[in-house]
């Protein structure tokens, strides 16, 4: 029974990784860049929600919405100010800029909120559900996290495949020039991608801090790196890949924590990534990149 609850909480943690990984993979697919500031958007979202929760009397759901809106705007601003001027620069310049943005966000948070950690309150109460005569106990937080993540992933998949904007995103990710010839505004599409990715990151931040209630300016760094790992694991650029990679990563992490060692769990997670990439360099669902002649 311990196994079952480990798997379930692993899926919950993994779906948070998956939400963050979607932002990495979508931005990579469309703008062909690694947005290493993405993890810090999680932190900004969590701080915004924390502030709204402690300074106003808004209900938790309204606080999540406020945080999400702020992060959506932040994501678009980061793209416009930091990345758009570098559209035709080398990928190394863009990568360094992204790292710079990451530090900028972390240090701004430190300046505003202080370097100390804050105690985040679980957003969905401390209740839990008991199954099999109390042998398996699942917290409300875990259940809500899984439900919200699954709903968001379904909505995102429908949006990408069924709407004109979603199809435009797929077109831009495959061929920017040809997409422009269809009348697609590439800059606008990239901006929308950052907006969606950042909104997902903000929600992931809320879910993460609700389950692991410690908040500091570096809160986003580790989940950010793990979600990036998940995106690579699933095949960077692939949306279903990010979802599968995220959930697998969460489950593996939890299994290692419970059955092997808490201290070694991260080493195991990254070790598995290395093995996967040795066997299949494009990740689980990654496409082979064929150079056009």
């Amino acid at each position: 029974m311990e196994f079952l609850s480990t798997i379930i909480s692993g899926i919950s943690l993994g779906s948070i990784y998956a939400l963050i990984a979607l932002g990495y993979t979508m931005v990579y697919g469309i703008a062909k860049m690694l947005n290493f500031a993405h993890g810090d958007v999680i932190m900004v979202g969590a701080f915004m929600m924390f502030t709204a929760l402690t300074k106003t009397s808004l209900p938790p759901i309204a606080c999540i919405i406020v945080g999400t809106i702020i992060c959506t705007v932040l994501g678009m601003l980061i793209e416009k100010i930091a990345y758009k001027p570098l559209r035709s620069a080398t990928s190394l310049s863009v990568l360094i800029t992204a790292i710079g943005v990451s530090y900028f966000l972390q240090n701004s948070a430190q300046l505003i909120f202080g370097a100390g950690t804050k105690q985040f309150t679980p957003l969905f109460g401390n209740g839990s559900v008991s199954l099999f005569d109390g042998q398996v106990v699942i917290s409300h937080n875990t259940i809500v996290t899984i439900i919200i993540s699954v709903v968001l992933m379904i909505v995102l998949t429908l949006f990408i495949n069924k709407t004109k904007t979603g199809r435009a995103m797929l077109a831009v990710s495959e061929d920017k020039g040809a997409a422009q010839l269809m009348g697609i505004n590439v800059n606008k599409t990239i901006s929308i991608t950052f907006a969606i990715g950042s909104a997902l990151a903000a929600i992931a931040g809320a879910l993460l801090c609700s389950s692991y209630p410690i908040l500091s300016p570096t809160t986003g760094a580790m989940p950010g790196i793990k979600a990036f790992t998940a995106a690579v694991f699933g095949g960077i650029g692939s949306i279903p890949g990010a979802m599968i990679g995220g959930i697998l990563l969460g489950v593996i992490e939890n299994l290692s924590k419970v059955y092997i060692s808490t201290q070694l769990s991260d080493a195991i997670v990254f070790g598995i990534l290395i093995i996967i990439l040795l066997v299949k360099p494009t990740g689980i669902l990654g496409k082979k990149i064929s150079e056009k002649v």
């Binding site: 797929l170 495959e174 040809a178």
Partner: peptide, 8 residues
């Protein structure tokens, strides 16, 4: 080179 969207 046509540049169709090969995944769609």
């Amino acid at each position: 080179g046509r540049r169709i969207f090969s995944q769609l």
